[in-house]
Design a protein around this nucleic acid. Sequence first.
DNA 1: CATAAATTTTAATCCTGATTAAAATAATGC
DNA 2: GCATTATTTTAATCAGGATTAAAATTTATG
Lengths: 205, 205
Amino acid sequence: MAQTAEDTRFATQRDRLLKAAARCFNEKGYSGTSLKDVANHLGLTDAAIYYYVRNKEQLVYQCYLRAAELGREALDRALADGTTGFEQAYLYIRYHVEIMASVRGPVAIMSEIPSLQPEHRNEVLAISRRHSRDFEAILSRGIDDGSIAPCDVRMTGNAIMGAINWIPKWFHGDADMAEQISRGFPDILTRGLRPVPQPLGPDHS
Amino acid sequence: MAQTAEDTRFATQRDRLLKAAARCFNEKGYSGTSLKDVANHLGLTDAAIYYYVRNKEQLVYQCYLRAAELGREALDRALADGTTGFEQAYLYIRYHVEIMASVRGPVAIMSEIPSLQPEHRNEVLAISRRHSRDFEAILSRGIDDGSIAPCDVRMTGNAIMGAINWIPKWFHGDADMAEQISRGFPDILTRGLRPVPQPLGPDHS
DNA sequence: CATAAATTTTAATCCTGATTAAAATAATGC
DNA sequence: GCATTATTTTAATCAGGATTAAAATTTATG
């Protein structure tokens, strides 16, 4: 109970901190960003950061947890909202892209994993792997239910995730552009999944 | 003339150096890798590196130039070998993936751009942009000649390049696996480009 | 072999940036 | 307004890592 109270009390600043850190890490990489960099974004001094986190590593770590949380949410929503495997894959991509392209989204520094200390790294890797497997499961389901063409789910999953994870590298636009991307991207990444030579005519499913 | 002689004389060690540096940068990022790291891979001392390059920044810079060179080659080969836009896109992806997945390939640290000093950064960005545009041109050509379905070439290009550029993040396997990827990936990334309901079967061109 | 050039190492230097402790300031409950 | 807690700053420490200069070693070449 004190937990919740504390969390809400910290929430705003800590949130800003994580978001600022995430942006910096995305732009300059872990070792490339100094705590002073991050602090400047908040109008603070580097030392102030230590009030919120134990050290720099905790900063990325927390970013990852936050990102994982959002990724998980996207996945769950997709599973809930879609019926066929294809739909679920589509929705997952859409939700995920929305997060990645969103200017206010917290993070997507799926690089930087080597910067984590062993325990955290393993944890994050585990989460990430589970996440990948879940997505691959969606693909498999789609293959089974006929909504997705047979393919190497592992490799296909990597391709799609790569395209998504790369977004922050080239997208620095505004909300409008983000909107555009989250509408266009899922179609692009998904068009190749369709079960092949389907006559275009009336689709009796 | 002395130029050529010198180049060949330096070639081997310098090559090893760049390759080692590239691998490190890929794994740990620019600021994350120390010159000692790189030197260790060569059985050298950190100071020895300065015999080959002026400073650390030159190291990434050279890696980029090398990568750009290879990318350009892939593009040129694809343009030469393919006839339709689709074929050219397919081949480009294939050649590029081969480079990325190749254990001996020098590099793909398309991240790390912020680490470059302004002039070099602009140069590399210019090259990169030109490269993107060339690839998009291939897509456009494919749309024109009917071998590729109409699409937002900019966004599609980004998606494909992202998937490719992300490869080093998840692939750490051996040559066999690399072979497998460079065979499988182009199909995956390319399937979505086909002008709609096209039988997939053996492509008799 | 002897000399010059090429290559690498040793041993500083020097700076950046993380981290810490103590002090200062702001906010809050009473 | 006072005491306590939350938040931030100042100032200092400290280590790692880039860079350099000089020395040592290896290699080529006459």
